[in-house]
Amino acid sequence: MLILTITEQNIDNHLIPILAQVSDPEIPVLSIMDMGVVRSAIIENDVVKVQITPTYSGCPAMDVIGDDIKKALQEAGYESEIELILSPAWTTDWITPKGRKDLERYGIAAPLEAEADKEALLGEKKIVKCTNCGSTNTRLVSQFGSTACKAQFQCNDCQEPFDYFKCLK
């Protein structure tokens, strides 16, 4: 593992459609491009070098994502090298607007801004929107959910239990 600091996303246009086919195994509707985990992808001497960054340190999906990227690129005729980078650290701000919509459709409430996130997770304010009926009359069930990135909520109106993607900044 090498930890590099890269200042901006640098992705070769030719590679975008290939990488966009790969999704997070735990959130299959969300492309890794919309999740913002691909920080760079360039073609160097016929080898594609991809740098990805983990959402959470212990995210077990990262190894699978790396393998899936390799496979997708191989099917498109590319050799590839995958590198995991930690800096700059991933933030939920890197989820694209399309990614947020995909999350909501899948039943996961998209992350709020940092301050609102804190109020929601302390149960101070009812602001997390139910992914089933849209009501904000929801309550926190647990700060930790089915994966490291989520918290559990339940809707008081339609009773739907759902996940909330925690803000990470």
């Binding site: 959470y56 212990g58 995210c59 077990p60 069930v141 559990q152």
Partner: peptide
Amino acid sequence: ETDIACTNISLDLFG
């Protein structure tokens, strides 16, 4: 819920 929380914390630490 607390069971899941404890294991989530563990996972973060191991990561």
